[in-house]
């Protein structure tokens, strides 16, 4: 890209940079990033192929763009990078190599970004339209824009992932809550049922006690009566009139006790 008027040249460059930067800030995920780079990078630098590796621990985001408009996004691990890339990564020194057969040269830079993340930028260009040294400052800016965006998108992805995890957990929690509610309801109904059974047997028991007390008290009061009257009557009269009645009442009392016991047993059987 040769422009004779330097002012016009800078203007074009500035506009291209603004569009490049604005476009990248608009994209929503990493997969779209290479296509977006492809739209504006050709107005900034001369290249045949553009590779950008964003390295976060062992995981590498690989962006690839070529002059004909092809673009791709992939991920790989650090050891899958080629020897030249490895060399630049290890040394940290920018490097370039030229291939006589294809008449292409490769320039490569390693950048140290925030949060201890690295990036590796490779540009292949043909000798007919070579990468110009004066574009090196632009490369730094391009890295800054790309690394910041990737970092940002990774963060968004992480948050999204965590949100999904949270949503799954929330769903699981709601399901558990429903289970607990169902259990509670079941327990409540069991308690209500048991309480009503208890109330029922309580009232039966009350009835039984009342019945028993009357059943036993009636003959007992007669016996008490006949014992008490002893001092008020002549002995002969007591022996002839009362004593036979006394033994009858004692037998009544015995019968009452037997019946009370039998009723208690019936009640016991009904309850079990």
């Amino acid at each position: 890209m040769e422009v004779s008027n330097p002012y016009l040249g800078y203007k074009i460059l500035f506009e291209a940079m603004v569009k490049f930067s604005a476009g990248i800030s608009m994209i929503k995920n990493l997969e779209e990033l290479p296509l977006e780079i492809n739209l504006h990078l050709k107005y900034l630098i001369n290249f045949q192929e553009f590779n950008y590796y964003f390295i976060k621990e062992n995981k590498v985001d690989c962006l690839w763009v070529n002059q004909t408009g092809k673009a791709s996004y992939s991920t790989c691990s650090l050891d899958q990078l080629d020897a030249f890339a490895q060399q630049v990564l290890e040394s940290g020194v920018p490097a370039s190599k030229y291939c006589k057969v294809s008449k292409t040269s490769i320039h490569s830079w390693k950048f140290y970004n925030e949060n201890n993340h690295f990036s590796l930028l490779l540009i292949r260009s043909h000798s007919d339209n070579p990468f110009a040294d004066k574009s090196i400052p632009l490369i730094k800016v391009v890295n800054k824009i790309l690394s910041a965006r990737i970092e940002n998108l990774n963060m968004v992805q992480l948050i999204h992932f965590q949100n999904q995890k949270l949503a799954r957990l929330t769903t699981a929690l709601q399901a558990k809550n429903k289970e607990i509610e169902a259990l509670n309801r079941k327990q409540e109904s069991t308690i209500i049922e048991k309480t009503s059974r208890l109330k029922d047997s309580n009232s039966k028991l009350k009835g039984l006690i009342q019945f028993n007390s009357h059943q036993l008290r009636e003959p007992l009061t007669r016996v008490i009566d006949m014992v008490a009257i002893k001092d008020d009557l002549p002995v002969e009269e007591y022996i002839s009139d009362i004593l036979p009645l006394l033994s009858e009442s004692v037998l009544d009392l015995d019968r009452a006790i037997i019946e009370v016991v039998q009723r208690s047993e019936v009640f016991d059987n009904e309850e079990n």
């Binding site: 009566d225 006949m226 008020d232 009362i242 009645l245 009442s249």
Partner: peptide
């Protein structure tokens, strides 16, 4: 209860 009546009558 006949017996009760007998006793009460005596009293």
């Amino acid at each position: 209860q006949k017996i009760t009546n007998v006793l009460n009558r005596k009293y």
